[in-house]
Amino acid sequence: MDLTFYIAAAIAVFSTVMVVTRFNIMHALLYLIVSLLSVAVIFYLYGAPFMAALEIIIYAGAIMVLIIFFVMMLNLGPETARQEKEWLRPGMWLLPALLCAVLLGELVYLIAQSKTPVTGITPVPPKEVGRSLFGPYILAVELSALLLMAGIVGAYHLGRQKKKILHRFFESNAS
């Protein structure tokens, strides 16, 4: 394991912690992009350069930008940050952190205990990935295509604002 990994891992963990602790949603998003970029570096280190590229292009580039645009569209000002501060009281942290610490301990214990053969890092070239993707996984590719289609249609339908369609559960509260 070289230094690059540790630096990237440290950046990833740090920026993720920052995402978790930020009150301002924009800051959190930017930290998340940093985290994703550092994870992309780690992908590269693990011999998956194509995935690293995809991570940057799709995750950091497309999805995060979508969320950023969304947040900008909602026009959430400093009011939201203040409210976020109010909601994130120190007492809230205790139980989830404890449980998650237990979970992490168990995960690390399991990872450390695994008796897998030591092979080191083996790069898997994108060509092989493509072969596999359009070979045995062709059905899954079709399914994910369907999923994306459903996502597009769903997003279009849900995001429509033509007229206010009140669900019956919200009726009484719709003033």
Partner: peptide
């Protein structure tokens, strides 16, 4: 989500 988390912790505990 807390319920899911507790469940995950329990299952992993049993596994270990």
């Amino acid at each position: 989500i807390m319920g899911v988390l507790i469940g995950a912790v329990l299952i992993l505990s049993v596994l270990i």
